[in-house]
Simulated assay, not measured.
Amino acid sequence: MSSLIWISGASAGIGAALASAVPFPDARVIDLSRRGGTVEHFKADLSDPADWKRVEQHFAAELAGFDGDRVVFVHNAGTVVPIGPAAAVDADAYTRAVLLNSAAPQVLGRAFLRATAELDREKHLVMLSSGAARNPYPGWSAYNAGKAAVEQWVRTVGAEENGCRVIAVAPGVVDTAMQGDIRAVDERAFPAVERFRDLKRSGGLITAEQAARGIWSLLDRRLDSGTVLDLRDLDG
């Protein structure tokens, strides 16, 4: 084994596609999620702070004595629910969304950086973002704020010269189950819903497999640590 790769939320959607498209044939791939998918699974609820410490300990244990060529953590896990005005949505669901979208990326990202700090190997930390980081869609306050936090965290940590290349990538609008949930929402909860329905009708969505290939291709590009980008803006 020369590559050790963690993907959070690899049980479905983009995360599952990432796990299936890992470009390193000898890689060991570990899914961090509640449900698990087709690869090795470390069960964790990433909206629960109690599990963040377990993940940190898992990183440290797996990297003890690691002598491979590269380590990668792709943080993909996130949620768009609950959808609706902040004052109207369920309080518990909203709290879980804030923890998963805003706090977990920072805490788990720090844990990965700490676990790999003394490792003299190729190191990548890839955070999934979204156009929602820059476009404030009413009804998505926890999701918008979470993705904006991810991008600013990446810019800041990328400037700290920690030996790990840290980037954030927005994959575009991807045809996943989450998009299906979005299209099913009432316009009163999410006024921009018709835009996403139009994208589905017009063939404006990319597949999870296309997104995964684009994300993995970033590891071969000459990107500075702290880079925040959108796959739709890349050439080739």
Rank of each mutant, 00 (worst) to 15 (best):
L205G: 08
H58A: 10
A192N: 11
E187Q: 15
A87W: 14
K43S: 15
V72P: 12
F112K: 11
V29F: 07
R54W: 00
A115L: 00
V71P: 08
A103T: 09
D26W: 10
A87Q: 08
R221D: 10
A87K: 15
A189Y: 11
A159N: 11
S2H: 10
R54K: 08
G84D: 00
A86V: 14
H124V: 12
Q179A: 07
A115I: 07
L234M: 13
E40H: 10
T227G: 03
S11F: 08
L18F: 10
N144D: 12
M1I: 00
R195F: 13
F190I: 04
W52S: 04
D48L: 09
T176I: 10
E194K: 15
R201F: 12
E62D: 02
F112E: 02
S130R: 09
D198F: 13
L128T: 10
R221W: 06
G204P: 09
D51T: 04
T156N: 13
N144E: 11
Q57Y: 12
D67C: 05
Y94I: 12
D31Q: 09
G204W: 06
A61W: 06
A44I: 04
H75P: 14
V80A: 15
I14V: 13
L4P: 01
K53T: 15
R155F: 14
D45I: 07
S3I: 08
L119I: 00
D92H: 14
R213W: 03
P82L: 06
W216H: 02
R183G: 06
A132T: 03
F196P: 07
A208V: 00
P25N: 05
V185N: 02
V157Y: 10
E160K: 00
R195C: 06
D175C: 12
G204C: 14
D67E: 01
A115E: 05
P85N: 08
A91I: 05
E62V: 00
M1H: 00
G9M: 02
A10N: 08
P136S: 09
A170F: 09
F66W: 00
A132E: 00
P136Q: 10
I30G: 13
V71Y: 06
D220F: 02
E160F: 00
R213P: 12
P136T: 13
D51L: 02
P82G: 05
A19G: 15
V98T: 11
A159Q: 14
D92R: 14
S217D: 09
T227N: 03
W140Q: 03
S8A: 08
M178A: 06
A10D: 07
V81D: 14
L4E: 03
D181H: 06
I206Y: 11
A50Q: 13
R110W: 07
P105W: 02
G236P: 14
A111T: 04
G146H: 14
S2C: 07
L199I: 14
I5E: 09
L218G: 07
D233N: 15
S33M: 11
F73H: 02
L18I: 02
A87N: 11
P49H: 05
S47N: 04
S130D: 01
I215F: 07
W140T: 03
G163I: 04
D45Q: 04
R96W: 12
K123G: 04
K200C: 07
I83C: 05
G180C: 01
G65S: 08
G139V: 06
A21S: 13
I83V: 05
M178Y: 01
A148C: 09
A12T: 13
R155W: 14
I215E: 08
I83K: 07
D186V: 00
P191G: 10
V157F: 07
S33R: 15
L229G: 03
D31A: 06
G37Y: 02
